[in-house]
Simulated assay, not measured.
Amino acid sequence: MAQTLRDLGRPLASGNEADVFAYGDILLKVTKRSNDSGPATHEARILAALAPLGLAPRVDGVIEVDGHWGVLMERIHLPVMASALSDPNLFPELLELMVSLHGRIHAVTAPPEVPALKQRMATRIGRAERISPDLRSALLTQLTGMPDGDRLCHGDFHPFNILGLDQHARVIDWLDATRGDPAADVCRTELLISTYDAGMAQSYAESYCLATGVERRAVEAWLPLVAAARLAENVPDEFDRLVQLAQGGTLG
Results as ranks from 00 to 15, higher is better:
126 G>V: 12
160 F>Y: 02
167 Q>D: 15
114 V>P: 12
156 D>A: 07
148 D>K: 13
128 A>V: 02
131 I>T: 01
153 C>I: 10
143 L>F: 12
153 C>D: 11
159 P>E: 04
145 G>S: 10
146 M>P: 02
148 D>F: 08
133 P>R: 14
159 P>G: 12
169 A>M: 02
137 S>P: 05
133 P>Y: 09
140 L>A: 08
144 T>I: 10
124 R>T: 02
169 A>R: 00
125 I>Y: 05
137 S>D: 04
147 P>Y: 04
144 T>D: 14
124 R>A: 01
152 L>C: 10
144 T>P: 00
126 G>A: 14
149 G>D: 05
162 I>E: 11
159 P>S: 09
142 Q>D: 15
125 I>D: 00
143 L>V: 10
132 S>H: 06
119 Q>K: 08
159 P>N: 05
146 M>F: 03
136 R>F: 02
150 D>I: 10
117 L>V: 00
141 T>G: 14
141 T>A: 13
162 I>H: 10
136 R>I: 00
161 N>A: 14
121 M>D: 00
127 R>H: 11
133 P>H: 11
130 R>I: 01
116 A>C: 06
114 V>M: 13
129 E>T: 07
163 L>I: 12
146 M>H: 02
139 L>D: 02
119 Q>S: 14
154 H>S: 01
120 R>A: 09
138 A>V: 10
148 D>V: 14
137 S>E: 02
119 Q>D: 12
131 I>G: 07
137 S>L: 14
131 I>Y: 13
115 P>W: 05
145 G>D: 15
148 D>L: 11
144 T>N: 13
169 A>D: 08
164 G>M: 08
131 I>E: 02
154 H>K: 03
155 G>M: 09
164 G>W: 08
133 P>N: 11
122 A>V: 02
130 R>S: 12
164 G>V: 03
126 G>S: 14
154 H>P: 02
152 L>F: 15
128 A>M: 02
116 A>E: 14
152 L>D: 01
155 G>C: 04
138 A>I: 10
115 P>T: 10
141 T>Y: 07
134 D>V: 11
127 R>C: 03
127 R>T: 08
161 N>K: 05
168 H>R: 14
135 L>I: 12
128 A>Y: 04
138 A>D: 06
143 L>N: 04
129 E>L: 13
156 D>E: 13
142 Q>A: 15
118 K>F: 01
125 I>T: 01
150 D>T: 15
169 A>I: 05
158 H>R: 14
124 R>C: 00
134 D>Q: 08
117 L>H: 14
157 F>D: 05
159 P>D: 07
164 G>N: 03
119 Q>L: 06
160 F>G: 09
119 Q>P: 01
114 V>F: 07
168 H>Y: 01
